[in-house]
Design a protein around this nucleic acid. Sequence first.
DNA 1: AAGTTATTGATAGTAAGTATCAACTATCAA
DNA 2: TTGATAGTTGATACTTACTATCAATAACTT
Lengths: 144, 144
Amino acid sequence: MISTRTSQPDVIAALEDAGLRITGQRRQVVAAIERRDVGFSAEDIAGELEGVGRATVYRTLKLLVKADVICKLVLPDGTPMYSPSRLEHHHHSVCTSCGAVEEFRDTTVERVLRSLTREIEGEIVGHRMEVFIRCRSCLDSSSS
Amino acid sequence: MISTRTSQPDVIAALEDAGLRITGQRRQVVAAIERRDVGFSAEDIAGELEGVGRATVYRTLKLLVKADVICKLVLPDGTPMYSPSRLEHHHHSVCTSCGAVEEFRDTTVERVLRSLTREIEGEIVGHRMEVFIRCRSCLDSSSS
DNA sequence: AAGTTATTGATAGTAAGTATCAACTATCAA
DNA sequence: TTGATAGTTGATACTTACTATCAATAACTT
């Protein structure tokens, strides 16, 4: 259903296309991200990849955000979190209990933006929309 | 045009109503915020109020966020920033050049959320929408 | 005015990075 | 295949934005 834009060879190719070097460390970070499909922190990756320096993990994550391979988002309490990006342009719903991240596309969001063009002075250069939820399974387990 | 919910006595009253003590420090922080109408950082306030401890500034800002007197938002680069809150429920447009923050209400945003209820599994407990812009005056001064 | 309890501030600590820079290595050209 | 070259790495120290601690202090209450 969901197109998998983040298969490892694609990501590596994308980095190459961006004129970046393909190093063992970058491969490891990409592979570590592939193994996850819910939100993760930079420290999660750094902790998992003992052989890769922390600075390199942070640098690579930043690169991957820029390349649209992952998204960085911020929970209501300010905690940053990363999540693999599978949809072309999208927004996030984040469960505030378990941290599960889902992506959604909604054309109405973009319609809102177009309507805001009339209301906002200046040129819109970007936007962010996050919806915070209690996901189905958290609701189910708490209503016991 | 815009209802000023953050006049100093009101804010103090609101804090009192919340069962909090009205201290000189809290008055100072509130007054410092009154003097601003664009985005500011916690350190801006702490730097301005030499007589008030940093910890107290941060504590008070947190209190004021909870009391809806100010909003905390996050720029695309992750920098947190505070801005006085004048509209009841609103979203923000932030100029990525000069940091000017405007609030806007848009019922279409809330309409989007209602439509998302159908799309998102789970219970929506909150949302955040930020629009990043290049404001009129930044556009004007750069096109010279 | 006294008592109780919230509040403060100095300090140290945490989370999430970023800057530095010498050592290393991917890639390219010969 | 081998240099040369320029991008990349990692250890370390530093930064930003806070938060925890806790003894001292000050607000409300009576």
